[in-house]
């Protein structure tokens, strides 16, 4: 049985950095004034992606853009329903985001509920000029009117599938795969 479970590679190790570079390019194209730009990653996948995008911008422009990380657990709309619960991580936004062009970054865009929570969290820190959204994978199935400004790849999925994003830093290699839900018990959709 286990052999029949399929795993489809969506982005391979070689393509992964190229996709990130393209997202970084697009962000810079839309936000020419990098001094106004703030990258905010949603923990944890979004934070890792944010670091990569930040490094890509630094390599190309020699500028270190402002960046931070937020944990959206406190803002979830299903907080009384989920168990076992997600661990609350620390939010790190150590500067004013007032009047900044914020790019919110997450690895996978799915229902849109995480992004909604992320936007709410950002507003507790100030009033940005604009919030844009960058994601590595848009897998569809939106439950809220939310769409990304920068997308690595659009992947049509079924709700039974799981999109797993791997980063060298924590998973040993880069890549994105699509697999069936029961393949890994403890994985919840992002």
């Amino acid at each position: 049985m286990s052999k029949s479970k399929k795993e489809i590679i969506i982005i391979d190790e070689k393509t992964f950095p190229r996709v990130i570079n393209r997202i970084a390019h697009e962000i810079m194209e839309k936000n020419p004034d990098l001094s106004d730009l703030v990258l905010i990653g949603i923990k944890k996948g979004g934070s890792l992606l944010k670091e990569r995008i930040k490094n890509a911008i630094k390599k190309m422009e020699g500028i270190e853009v402002l960046s931070g990380d937020i944990d959206i657990t406190m803002y979830r709309d299903d907080i009384f329903k989920i168990s076992p619960k997600h661990k609350i991580e620390t939010t790190e936004l150590l500067f004013s985001i007032d009047d900044k062009n914020v790019v919110l970054i997450d690895d996978v865009l799915f229902t849109g509920r995480t992004v909604r929570a992320g936007i709410d969290a950002i507003f507790d820190f100030g009033r940005p000029k604009r919030i844009q959204l960058a994601v590595l994978i848009d897998r569809g199935h939106r439950e809220l009117p939310i769409q990304a400004d920068f997308v690595g790849k659009v992947v049509p999925t079924s709700r039974k599938e799981i999109v797993e994003v791997m980063f060298k830093e924590v998973d040993g290699k880069d890549g994105v795969v699509l697999r069936e839900k029961n393949d890994r018990k403890n994985k919840v959709e992002s």
């Binding site: 944990d71 406190m74 803002y75 907080i79 661990k87 609350i88 991580e89 620390t90 939010t91 790190e92 709410d120 507790d124 820190f125 100030g126």
Partner: peptide, 23 residues
């Protein structure tokens, strides 16, 4: 340890200008 780690994450909220989360 889990309670203490959770408390550590909440400490950040106390340092914000707007000390309020909707949890």
């Amino acid at each position: 340890i889990y309670i203490l780690e959770t408390a550590k994450s909440f400490e950040e909220v106390l340092k914000r200008d707007v000390k309020k989360v909707p949890t």
